[in-house]
Measured scan of single mutants.
Amino acid sequence: INASIYDEIQQEMKRAKVSQALFAKVAATKSQGWLCELLRWKEDPSPENRTLWENLSMIRRFLSLPQPERDAIY
């Protein structure tokens, strides 16, 4: 996982035409506020920051699903 995940998140929300609230809920079981802060600060993903790493790993797993599967989840 690297910093490009933040751009991938924004691209996916645009592509699927979903809100931050919906993306946060389905991709990371988090709130819109959490995702907003995540995208604002764009912390460097590092395994040392375990909570951030685990949350980004969950999002990465969601983004790695085939597009039709992600669309069905939304």
Rank of each mutant, 00 (worst) to 15 (best):
R40H: 12
I73Q: 14
E69F: 05
S64G: 08
E69K: 14
I5V: 07
L65G: 01
T51V: 15
P68M: 11
K25M: 04
A16H: 01
I73W: 15
T29S: 12
T29G: 14
D7T: 13
D44V: 11
R50E: 13
L39G: 02
Q67R: 10
N55E: 15
K14L: 12
S4V: 06
R70G: 00
S31P: 03
S31M: 04
I9W: 01
C36L: 12
C36D: 15
N55V: 06
T29C: 11
N55P: 12
V18C: 10
R40G: 06
I5P: 00
L65I: 07
W34T: 05
I59A: 01
S57Q: 13
I59K: 10
R60Q: 13
Y6I: 05
E8Q: 15
L39V: 06
P68H: 15
R50Y: 09
R40N: 10
S46P: 06
L63E: 04
S64E: 09
S4L: 11
A16P: 00
E12S: 00
A27E: 02
L38N: 03
W41M: 07
K42H: 08
E48R: 07
D7E: 14
K25I: 06
V18A: 07
L52E: 12
I73T: 10
W53R: 08
F23H: 03
I59R: 00
T51A: 10
F62T: 01
A21P: 07
Q67H: 12
E54Y: 06
C36G: 15
P66R: 08
Q32S: 10
L65D: 03
I73M: 12
L65E: 01
C36M: 14
E8A: 10
A24V: 03
W41T: 12
E8P: 02
S57E: 14
W53E: 05
M13L: 15
L63G: 00
I73P: 01
W53V: 09
L52S: 07
L35E: 00
D71K: 05
R61W: 06
P66D: 15
T29W: 10
S19M: 02
Q32E: 09
I9L: 03
Q67N: 04
K14S: 15
F23N: 03
K25V: 03
L39P: 01
W41N: 07
Q67E: 13
L39F: 02
R60H: 15
W53T: 07
I9P: 05
F62L: 03
R15L: 06
A21D: 05
L56V: 05
K42A: 09
G33P: 12
P47I: 12
L35Y: 06
R61P: 04
S46N: 08
Q11T: 12
N55T: 11
I5F: 07
S57G: 14
K14Y: 14
M13G: 02
W53M: 13
K42L: 01
S19E: 06
Q11M: 15
G33A: 13
S19Y: 02
K42M: 07
I9V: 07
A3L: 15
I73E: 13
F62P: 02
K42G: 06
K14T: 06
L38Q: 05
T51K: 11
P68F: 15
Q10R: 09
A27G: 03
E8I: 01
A3P: 06
R15Q: 01
D71H: 09
R61H: 14
S19I: 04
A24M: 01
Q67V: 10
A72S: 12
T29F: 06
K14A: 15
D7V: 12
R61K: 15
A3T: 15
L38M: 08
L52K: 07
A16V: 05
L39I: 06
N55H: 15
I59V: 14
S46A: 10
P68V: 11
P47T: 08
L63K: 00
S19F: 00
A27L: 02
E48C: 13
A24F: 00
D71L: 00
E8G: 01
P68I: 15
E48D: 08
L65Q: 10
E69D: 07
A72M: 12
R15W: 04
A27P: 02
G33S: 14
P66W: 04
K25A: 15
R70M: 03
R60W: 04
G33D: 15
Q10Y: 10
E48A: 12
R15A: 03
Y6R: 01
E54M: 12
L63R: 00
P47W: 06
W53G: 06
W34A: 06
V26G: 00
A28T: 10
S4A: 04
K25R: 13
T29I: 08
L39W: 03
V26Q: 01
Q20Y: 09
P66Q: 10
K42Y: 04
C36E: 08
C36T: 15
P47Q: 12
S19C: 02
N55G: 12
R60I: 06
F23D: 03
Q10T: 06
D71G: 05
E54K: 10
N55Y: 13
Q11P: 04
A28N: 08
V26S: 09
K17C: 08
A72Q: 14
Y74M: 05
L35P: 00
M13F: 00
K17G: 14
A72D: 14
N55A: 08
Q32M: 07
Y74V: 04
L52N: 08
F62S: 00
L22V: 11
I59P: 06
L52H: 11
P66F: 00
T29Q: 12
R50Q: 14
L52G: 02
K25Y: 04
R70V: 00
Q67I: 12
R15M: 02
E48Q: 12
A27D: 02
R15D: 06
R60C: 07
S57K: 14
D44W: 10
T51I: 13
R61S: 07
M13V: 07
A3I: 15
V26C: 10
Q20H: 06
R50A: 14
W34R: 02
W41Q: 14
R61D: 13
I9F: 00
L63I: 01
R70Y: 04
I59F: 05
A27W: 01
R60G: 06
L52M: 07
I59T: 01
W34N: 04
I73L: 13
I5W: 01
S64V: 07
A24C: 00
S31T: 09
W34I: 05
G33N: 13
E54Q: 12
F62E: 00
S46V: 10
L56I: 10
